[in-house]
Design a protein around this nucleic acid. Structure first.
Lengths: 127, 127
DNA sequence: TATAAATGTTAGCCACGGTTAACATAATAT
DNA sequence: ATATTATGTTAACCGTGGCTAACATTTATA
């Protein structure tokens, strides 16, 4: 139940849930729907997938929480996102808004190897 | 018929068709299937889509050719691909193989603005 | 040239990730 | 406490992009 590959869209959901959680609110389905611009029904379905993957917990009609595993997965995605965004903005000089959008898509296609190199590159840059 | 957005997978097909064409062979459906690792049936469907989009021409049971528009679209994708790959290999030091794979996915998520900045960055690098 | 093999097409299936509409439950206000 | 509103769920549907199996057509070979 827990170790299948997680899809790009599921990763996006984890990311949003984590961000909402960090902002201190109890995460409701409708908050996610609003943040992502999709219907409540879509969230219901998506949460079903994430529950099966062991990434989130939710009582019937209740609030949504990340499991330990879900939290870890979310952090990983966000780290990738932030790395990409920081490269785009600080190195390439892309605008915040576009960098945000691009990072959000590219975070799903970059390989671990490339991510690693990108991180080294950004650190080297500081020196 | 001609101006809808073209999907990531369609762009991949255009890319392969262009590459095969450049290598000098007459492009058959089965060549694309082999190159992409999908079934002949999938190619048949995909070519239907690209025909409707005005990107390829094909006689029944015949060879596949890019239209002028398809050629332009293919070149655009390939330019993006090459730019990304060259950044990954030459700047980040990612291996050829991984760079190839990553470029192939990222080429579909990078925005025109970011591509432009990336190209400037690569040129600046040479100076 | 007749047959066999390769190739292209079609039909029907599947999973994914969205939608709307209808309904169930919770939360809020009167 | 009840009625209303907000939220969550479910069912049925859609398009995309794969698949296999069966069939059509071309190409190659005996």
């Amino acid at each position: 139940m827990e170790n299948q590959e997680i899809s790009a869209s599921s990763q996006d959901y984890l990311e949003i849930i984590y961000t909402l959680y960090k902002s201190g609110i109890e995460v409701r389905s409708v908050d996610i729907a609003t943040a992502m611009g999709v219907s409540r029904a879509s969230i219901s379905k998506a949460m079903g997938v994430l529950k099966n993957a062991g990434m989130v917990m939710q009582e019937k009609y209740g609030r949504i929480m990340l499991t330990t595993e879900g939290m870890a997965a979310a952090k990983k995605v966000i780290r990738t996102h932030e790395t990409l965004k920081s490269f785009l903005v600080d190195v390439l000089g892309v605008s915040e808004k576009i960098a945000q959008q691009d990072a959000c898509k590219m975070e799903h296609s970059i390989s671990p190897e490339t991510l690693k190199k990108l991180i080294s590159y950004l650190h080297k840059d500081k020196a």
